[in-house]
Amino acid sequence: MKAVVCEAWGLPDTLKVKELQDLEPAPGQVVIDVQAAGVNFPDVLIVQGKYQFKPELPFVPGSEVAGIIRSVAADVTTFKAGDKVIAFVPTGGFGQQLLAPLQALIPMPPGMDFETAAAITLTYGTSYHAIVNRAKLENSENMLILGAAGGVGLAAIEIGKALGARIIACASSDEKLEVCRQHGADVLINYSKEDLREAVKAATGGKGPDVIYDPVGGEYTEPAFRSIAWGGRHLVVGFANGDIPKMPLNLTLLKGASLMGVFWGEFTKRDPKGNAANMRQLLQWLHEGKIKPHISGRYRLEEAPQALNDMASRRVTGKIVVLPQSDC
């Protein structure tokens, strides 16, 4: 089988596509023929050795996949060869085959396509955990989303609308904001053209947003928090900007507001039952048409480094996927 291999920490261009031995399942495992793999910002960091954990070199990057079970270990009775599944794993996704433990598997709902299935676990799982479990967003509250056209941003828009909130989407271009509007955003702010604080003040009648969803960090975090409503909740989701902001903590006192960390990967380990319940709700909303991943790019396995470069340079709206079995 072919796979993208990271042999040394570095930029995506250093990754190599190599021919590897076919995989065999150990007890409690299955082998999946990967049909689609989601590309996420953590993948960019992992290959550079800059993420929260460092896999042992060499490794195959990619964590979010959908495919068809190729084989199962002798002790596996809940899945069989031919079953269509979704899997979220630490590494291994950017290959034609993936070894996955049973606890990483979710049966694919009937009628779902592989690209959609590979685009729902991390971005929607992160956003649901942030908005529902952490911020406890309520009906009719205002939620401000920074970097709203990215994968987690669009997921946050749809989840917020499903909960009855009013969504203020912020992005760096009118083209990206149009995608946000199509996914349900009520107010659009182009922070490359507008003063963020003034625009937020106008959008909320001076009250400020009840919840801020921040996967970006950098220069917009502090002005967004300075605009937050009394008792508001600022969700620290990530730092796609590359800069971890240093915010004056007296602002939390003055606003009676909370900074709330969001680490979905750790949540899935500490509360697997809670994460499973979240995924059931997301799949139900997907069935009802309340959420739908926006897939803006598809890449062959050999193009995976380019996919990661596009993600790193913030040229991506919504989700992009690698198709390991595809030649087109």
Rank of each mutant, 00 (worst) to 15 (best):
L163V: 06
A307Y: 05
I168A: 03
F94K: 07
I157A: 03
L249V: 15
F225Y: 12
G208C: 10
E141N: 07
F263L: 15
V132W: 10
G208K: 08
A257Q: 04
H294T: 15
M311L: 11
G151H: 01
Q281K: 13
W230N: 05
C180H: 12
T78V: 14
A229E: 01
K201G: 14
G242L: 04
G231W: 01
E302F: 04
G147A: 10
S258R: 12
L15W: 09
D327F: 09
P61Q: 06
D327Y: 12
K207L: 14
L308T: 11
K84M: 11
S227R: 07
A165L: 03
K201V: 12
I46Y: 07
T91M: 05
L196K: 05
A165F: 02
M112G: 11
A74C: 13
I68K: 08
V322W: 08
K2I: 08
Q96E: 06
V31W: 06
G289A: 03
A229Y: 01
G151E: 01
W285N: 08
L99N: 11
A8M: 12
G231L: 00
T116A: 08
F263I: 15
G206T: 10
L146A: 06
V44T: 15
Y213S: 01
A169D: 08
A240W: 08
V216L: 02
L308W: 02
A307D: 01
A171P: 04
A26T: 11
K16C: 09
L146H: 08
L146Q: 11
L188M: 13
A199R: 05
A199E: 02
M143C: 02
R70W: 11
Q182V: 05
P248T: 11
P110D: 14
L308V: 10
G184H: 03
Q325R: 05
H183E: 14
I32P: 01
L177W: 12
P324H: 09
F239C: 04
L249E: 09
E266V: 15
Q97Y: 03
E303M: 06
H183R: 14
L45D: 00
G274N: 05
Q325I: 03
A148G: 06
L98F: 00
E288H: 07
A8L: 08
P101Y: 02
G218L: 06
P272R: 03
P109H: 02
C6D: 00
T204I: 07
P324F: 04
A229L: 00
E115C: 13
G164E: 04
R280L: 12
D210A: 13
D83P: 03
K319V: 09
N278I: 13
K50H: 15
P293M: 06
G10L: 05
I244M: 08
A229T: 04
A87F: 10
T252F: 12
L45R: 02
V39Y: 00
A117F: 09
